[in-house]
Write a protein that binds this DNA or RNA. Structure first.
Lengths: 194, 194
DNA sequence: AGATACTTGGAACGATCAGTCCAAGACGGG
DNA sequence: CCCGTCTTGGACTGATCGTTCCAAGTATCT
């Protein structure tokens, strides 16, 4: 019953992340977190600190899990900015289609709950969004977009990402989500080579 | 101190709506609602019923306030589908720029908190979003879009609307929001007459 | 084996939650 | 002027919130 840790810390964090993801910070009560992770209160607090700290570690865990996927999708040589956008949004669609994780996206859910977060939480959410934006911008530049185009397109792709999350939370079909993503990758821009 | 109602019911509802809008359903405690409206608990419950009922009435009040603005923006004769999209999103940008109302949009905040809402609340949020979608589709058809184009564009414009709300909540600048809106109105579609 | 360090589940705390209730008071009708 | 009706603010309830604490128990080290 005790002695050395009886659970996998990382797996527990993954489950806590899912609780925040599904319920949002406010509705992610300690009871839901203990139930979701299978840990007792003592173990939760002893391992992760208070709720705010656990939330921040869940955000970290989220980035650790999904940013590499975005990175990989963005890294491949892309024939056009449009291809970059399509690859990025495909990662989002895949995550949303994954039945083992909650709807939407932890960052979007957290962003809409900004007033409920403390200063540290807000700063971290904002930094993670900015990070994605910068990753997108770099990849778009590498795909041949000029500076202005890259900046605008990165912002719009991020916006589409957020909208997919909201629509998913509201129960829109995966067909609708795919339509939105496809349209976002079919922007006018300058006429691209192919 | 009592006798006949000492407050304006509609104004109180407007303020309650702002509390739900800013804080989201979960964080909109009865204390915050009484403070925000200036009403005592007795008056709040006596006039509007419990929290869930007050939330639904706030949603109604929201539609009552903003749907006419969307209606008006969509009604004018528009030279192209693109003009419809631009007019619609301008209403959203104007609302977000209004310093007297909270950031984002009540529907988007509520949609991301779906698991925290009861069945009635969820259904009402979903119905209001569907309503906006239908309004957009009608206006796009009237502006000369074919059926498929109208359906897709209505969905994408709705998506952009949601993304503007999320980005606004996350603290993005109004310039960034305007950029996203402008890009959404500059879609490829079929080459339009002008 | 004994001592120490650590983990664990649950009890307990004060604060806050949504919701109910009521005495006090103010209006309108007779 | 007086009675009945309605409104109001605040006290109150039971549940739940986040957090702390601890006795009981187990593994590791000497």
């Amino acid at each position: 019953m005790a002695g050395r840790k009886q659970f996998d810390v990382d797996e527990a964090l993954r489950r806590a992340m899912h609780v925040f993801w599904r319920w949002g910070y406010s509705e992610a009560s300690i009871d839901r977190l203990t139930e979701g992770t299978g840990l007792g209160r003592g173990s939760l607090y002893g391992t992760f600190g208070d709720k705010s700290a656990l939330f921040r570690k869940s955000l970290q865990r989220y980035a650790q899990t999904y940013h590499p996927l975005y990175d990989q999708a963005l890294s491949g040589p892309h024939p056009s900015p449009s291809a970059v956008v399509a690859a990025y949004l495909q990662v989002t669609l895949n995550r949303i289609a994954d039945p083992t994780v909650p709807d939407g996206c932890l960052l979007t859910v957290s962003a809409t709950q900004f007033p409920a977060l403390d200063a540290d939480g807000q700063a971290m959410v904002r930094a993670m969004i900015d990070d994605l934006r910068a990753m997108l911008e770099q990849a778009l530049l590498a795909a041949g977009a000029d500076e202005q185009e890259a900046a605008e397109l990165a912002l719009c792709t991020l916006a589409t990402n957020k909208s997919l999350a909201v629509l998913s939370r509201a129960g829109f079909s995966s067909e609708d989500l795919a339509t939105v993503a496809a349209a976002a990758a079919r922007f006018p821009g300058r006429p691209h080579p192919l």
